[in-house]
Design a protein around this nucleic acid. Structure first.
Lengths: 218, 218
DNA sequence: GTCACACTGTTAACCGAATCACACTGTAGA
DNA sequence: TCTACAGTGTGATTCGGTTAACAGTGTGAC
């Protein structure tokens, strides 16, 4: 039985990596896999893999490893990827379209129920087979289809406003691609994808490397 | 003078947040700002702000706060955002186009020097005013224009291959949007943007919340 | 049957980041 | 000039996640 303890965020972040690897080995016909093997494939230490898998409650056997199928099922259950969650996307710009087109979204238990924008030029157009609706129709959609997750890819200026109307319509989780934080009431979960933060880490480390080995002089 | 100690990754990640806030206050005509104020605006603790700003080497004054302009300059220097870095993007699909169209890229010191793809349908088309070139032309471009950063938005299958040819052409940093890790030699910096990981955290926490307050049943 | 050992499960040590507590400083106000 | 105090700077503490160390276990080989 899976533990009900809260899973640390770093572990949650690594779960998808395990999933893709496990599914691949499953397709190759294997039924068990050892954490040493997983660690090698994903370039991490065996201990960390063991610790992460411990969260699933699945037990392994000496000289055999962990049973893959139960692992996959346990992880998917911990992530809620075993059954589809209903989601909407607001902001059908470049980024929004890219997210919608991101193939493995379906494998992650996400079902896009609607796409919204307030740009007259975009309303009525189709993205990946779905018609773009006006933002005004959003709250109704959230209520009538009991949407769980809102994907926020609107420009900075209206981000907070849209988030507010999402929350007041009953959404419980927001996946935000906004450069600045948004504030939500207690109980609503927000996860931000910060491209700027990621780039900052990349360039910061790059400068550090250059400083350590000054091969190229600016 | 800014410290040359390595800046912790979490701090690097927060720097862009400070930057946008600071620039905004600068535009509003303010010359100084206190960490308490910053903390309130960004919904974090004052202590953490102070610790982060400590890395810049800029000193604040009691009852006045930190001088904004030096702060901005110090942070941009630590991130290498003060002068443009030359970058290329490989993989002109949905995601690639979205990245190219991501407005603040220029403010982050990134100058896109070329866009590459190996899909015959895309080669020759224009994205944000730039013509898509064939992947074969990439190494030449890297060498001739001393490109620093490669943005990797290709499908999973060719990711490692493209990364390899980037590295062998002399790139020193890769910003990868690939679902699986890529391996590079020592000295090359890789930063992955993992959409799946982010979504995993969101949904994991959502389930936790539901478990804690079981308002909605299945 | 029994032996070796690959691999797991668990407790303890470690480390870095976040947080706390508090001394210090110099400005603003009287 | 003096005082109060907002706000900084810093050493000590806590905390969570990673790593290490080691005991336990049951499979596969002989």
């Amino acid at each position: 039985m899976a533990k009900l303890d809260s899973v640390p965020a770093p572990t949650l972040r690594r779960f998808p990596n395990y999933l893709t690897l496990l599914k691949q080995h499953l397709q190759d016909g294997q039924s068990h896999i050892s954490c040493t093997h997983i660690a090698q494939d994903l370039d991490m230490t065996a201990i960390r893999v063991r610790k992460d898998l411990e969260m699933t409650g699945v037990v392994g056997r000496p000289r055999v490893g962990y049973p893959i199928l139960p692992l996959v099922e346990a992880i998917e259950q911990l992530l809620g990827w075993n059954e589809p969650s209903r989601a909407i996307l607001v902001g059908a710009g470049n980024l929004g379209s890219a997210i919608i087109g991101y193939a493995p979204l379906g494998q992650m238990g996400l079902k896009i129920m609607g796409i919204f924008d307030n740009d007259a030029h975009k309303i009525g157009t189709r993205i990946q087979g779905q018609t773009v609706l006006t933002t005004e129709q959003m709250p109704e959609m959230i209520r009538n289809h009991s949407i769980d997750i809102g994907i926020l890819t609107v420009p900075e200026k209206v981000a907070q406003e849209v988030a507010d109307s999402m929350v007041s319509a009953g959404l419980s989780a927001i996946w935000a691609f906004t450069p600045r934080p948004i504030t939500v009431p207690e109980g609503v979960v927000v996860e931000r994808v910060q491209l700027a933060a990621s780039l900052a880490v990349l360039m910061g480390r790059m400068l550090e490397e250059d400083r350590r080995v000054p091969a190229r002089a600016g």
